[in-house]
Simulated scan of single mutants.
Amino acid sequence: MHFVELIAILSVCQFLFFGAMTGRARRRTGLLAPATTGAPEFERMYRVQMNTLELLVAFLPALLIAGTHHNPIWMAAIGSVYLVGRFIYWFAYVRSPSSRGLGFMLSLIPILLLCVFALVGVIGAF
C-alpha cells in the first residue's frame, strides 16, 4: 500500500506546485487578486491548476480504493501515468491550449481505470 500512498501524496504535491506556478504567473503579469481574467499567461496556468483540482477529486478516492482491493504496485503504476499526464498537460496548455489533448487523456484514462478497479474491488468484497 505504500506505493499507492506515495502516488497519492505526490499528486497533492503536484497540485500545490501548480498553485505556486499560478501565484507566480499572477505576480509576473501584475494581475491583482481576486481577478482571474485579463492576462492570458495567468489564465492558462490558472486553468491548469483548476483542471487538476477537478480531476484530483476523482483521482484520489479511486486510487486509494483500488489500491486497497487490488495489487497496490499496479494501482500505483496506473496512478503514476496520471502524474505524468498532468505534467504533459501543464507544459502543453501553457504553451498552446489546443495541444493539451495528450496530457488530458493521460490524466483521464488512469482515473477511469482506477474507478473501474475500485468499483470491481468494492463489489467483489460483498
Rank of each mutant, 00 (worst) to 15 (best):
residue 54 E to T: 09
residue 74 W to Y: 14
residue 115 C to S: 13
residue 96 S to Y: 08
residue 52 T to P: 08
residue 59 F to Q: 01
residue 85 G to N: 11
residue 59 F to Y: 12
residue 105 M to C: 11
residue 102 L to I: 14
residue 53 L to I: 14
residue 98 S to Y: 01
residue 73 I to S: 10
residue 105 M to N: 13
residue 64 L to Q: 10
residue 68 T to R: 05
residue 95 R to A: 13
residue 109 I to C: 01
residue 91 F to D: 13
residue 74 W to R: 04
residue 86 R to Q: 11
residue 72 P to H: 08
residue 83 L to C: 09
residue 85 G to Q: 10
residue 79 G to H: 03
residue 79 G to F: 01
residue 72 P to G: 10
residue 81 V to I: 15
residue 76 A to H: 02
residue 86 R to F: 05
residue 108 L to W: 11
residue 107 S to A: 12
residue 96 S to C: 11
residue 115 C to Q: 09
residue 109 I to P: 00
residue 101 G to Y: 02
residue 104 F to Q: 07
residue 110 P to W: 02
residue 63 L to N: 01
residue 93 Y to E: 09
residue 99 S to L: 13
residue 67 G to P: 07
residue 99 S to D: 14
residue 62 A to Q: 05
residue 111 I to G: 09
residue 89 Y to P: 01
residue 87 F to Y: 15
residue 112 L to R: 09
residue 81 V to H: 09
residue 110 P to M: 05
residue 53 L to K: 13
residue 79 G to Q: 03
residue 53 L to S: 15
residue 55 L to H: 09
residue 116 V to S: 08
residue 56 L to W: 12
residue 102 L to Q: 09
residue 98 S to K: 08
residue 76 A to V: 01
residue 100 R to S: 01
residue 84 V to I: 15
residue 56 L to E: 10
residue 61 P to H: 11
residue 56 L to D: 04
residue 55 L to E: 05
residue 55 L to Q: 14
residue 69 H to W: 12
residue 90 W to Y: 15
residue 102 L to D: 03
residue 66 A to I: 07
residue 82 Y to P: 04
residue 73 I to P: 00
residue 94 V to H: 03
residue 77 A to S: 14
residue 80 S to A: 14
residue 59 F to N: 03
residue 108 L to P: 00
residue 97 P to S: 08
residue 67 G to K: 03
residue 113 L to T: 05
residue 78 I to A: 12
residue 65 I to D: 03
residue 88 I to N: 01
residue 99 S to G: 08
residue 69 H to T: 06
residue 62 A to K: 03
residue 61 P to R: 10
residue 93 Y to D: 05
residue 68 T to L: 03
residue 74 W to M: 11
residue 103 G to C: 09
residue 61 P to A: 11
residue 108 L to R: 04
residue 91 F to Y: 14
residue 89 Y to A: 04
residue 99 S to H: 13
residue 105 M to H: 11
residue 55 L to R: 00
residue 75 M to Y: 07
residue 78 I to C: 12
residue 83 L to Y: 07
residue 70 H to D: 07
residue 62 A to W: 00
residue 85 G to E: 10
residue 106 L to A: 09
residue 90 W to G: 00
residue 86 R to G: 02
residue 87 F to P: 03
residue 66 A to S: 12
residue 66 A to H: 06
residue 81 V to P: 10
residue 53 L to P: 10
residue 67 G to M: 02
residue 83 L to D: 08
residue 95 R to T: 13
residue 64 L to V: 12
residue 74 W to E: 10
residue 115 C to K: 06
residue 64 L to G: 10
residue 85 G to I: 09
residue 72 P to M: 05
residue 108 L to M: 14
